[in-house]
């Protein structure tokens, strides 16, 4: 423990990093790296959360803007989690995956 990397190794790595960073981004990723396409990603722009509107109403049932009386304690999650599964496999090492969000 408490090892310190020597100056030569640090310089070598830093030099390589600068070369990498200067290259176009898509070429900078190393083998096995992937870049997800997020062109159609939803909710990319965060909204302003403070406003001065009142709720759309109390009797317009069926809209998601209503304060549902559903009790979360007795509900079952029904979303994409139903498609997820857990299996055991060795953890991939040396992977650098990068995902990018679109700006506002």
């Amino acid at each position: 423990m408490n090892k310190t990397m020597n100056a030569a190794s640090l310089a070598l790595a830093l030099g390589a990093a600068m070369t990498m960073a200067a290259a176009p981004i898509h070429a900078a990723s190393h083998g096995g790296a992937m870049k997800a396409e997020t062109e159609k990603c939803f909710g990319v722009a965060l909204k302003g959360k403070n406003d001065c509107k009142a709720g759309a109403g109390t009797t317009c049932a069926g809209t998601s803007k209503m304060d549902h009386q559903g009790n979360a304690w007795s509900m079952v999650p029904k979303g994409t989690c139903e498609k997820t599964m857990s299996k055991t496999s060795p953890t991939g090492n040396g992977q650098l995956m990068e995902f990018k969000e679109k700006k506002a």
């Binding site: 509107k53 709720g55 109403g57 317009c60």
Partner: peptide, 17 residues
């Protein structure tokens, strides 16, 4: 937005929508 109160009278909501 338009709603009604417990007596059925018009109740308007400042929804900005």
């Amino acid at each position: 937005a338009e709603d009604t109160d417990a007596a059925g009278a018009s109740l308007l909501i400042d929804s900005h929508g």
